[in-house]
Computed example of a mutant assay.
Amino acid sequence: MKDIDWSEAPDGTTHFWPGLFLLDGWYKVLEGDVWVYDNGWVKSRVVLSDINTDYLIKRPESWGGETHPPVGTVCEVRLTCSDLWGKARIKYITKTTCVFVYVFEDDPDELEEYSVATCYLKFRPIKTPEQLALEEREKITDEMYGFTRVKMIPAEVDIQREVCDDLYTAGYRLTGEK
């Protein structure tokens, strides 16, 4: 079965069908009625009670990082003995075992599948571009603050941090020369 890219799912999608008896594709199940996506949602003549739901794959719930990620989630994963995070798609997970596929940005067709004891893994959601930009901003303003810091009373420290933040907003950056 192919990996499901839920980011490509149309709005309202609740399930994916891997193409056994019905067409491979996106489905929406509402109160027992089955809707098929075909350039728009079309109500199927088939009702949920008429089909074998073992093959109907439910869309993963949104995941905030506080528990193990649901199957189908693309997240960052690392071994507990390592500091290196990698982007991965979760294929199977229980309290004891996790099967995941590394996702390579430069070659999406290259797949490396791993099965690892869940207790040896750490998971976190992929950071948004906004989160990455904020981290970069904080790192640079902290460097600026460290470069310009002099002994001050605590109230002046806050003012100096604000000045560094304002300089960043205005486009000033350290050149690397100290």
Score class of each variant (00 low, 15 high):
148 T>A: 13
161 R>A: 04
3 D>T: 01
9 A>Y: 04
51 I>Q: 05
144 M>K: 08
161 R>W: 07
8 E>R: 13
159 I>K: 11
60 P>Q: 07
164 C>A: 14
169 T>L: 14
144 M>R: 04
18 P>K: 00
101 V>W: 00
94 T>R: 03
167 L>G: 03
173 R>C: 06
65 G>E: 07
112 E>H: 11
47 V>F: 13
167 L>T: 07
121 L>Q: 03
113 E>H: 02
100 F>Y: 10
56 L>H: 05
63 W>V: 04
62 S>G: 11
124 R>C: 05
116 V>M: 06
137 R>C: 12
11 D>P: 12
73 T>L: 00
149 R>G: 02
136 E>G: 13
173 R>I: 07
9 A>L: 06
144 M>L: 13
78 R>I: 04
149 R>C: 11
154 P>G: 03
19 G>P: 03
41 W>F: 06
107 D>A: 15
97 T>G: 00
139 K>I: 07
44 S>K: 07
82 S>G: 05
115 S>I: 05
166 D>R: 14
134 L>K: 15
96 T>I: 07
11 D>S: 13
27 Y>G: 01
116 V>F: 06
9 A>K: 08
170 A>S: 12
75 C>Q: 01
4 I>H: 01
53 T>A: 04
53 T>W: 01
91 K>M: 04
28 K>S: 14
110 E>S: 06
30 L>P: 00
76 E>L: 03
130 E>S: 10
156 E>Q: 15
34 V>E: 01
145 Y>E: 10
57 I>F: 03
178 K>Q: 13
78 R>F: 04
9 A>V: 10
12 G>I: 13
32 G>M: 06
80 T>R: 14
45 R>F: 13
175 T>Y: 06
23 L>W: 06
170 A>R: 09
149 R>M: 14
70 P>D: 02
108 P>M: 09
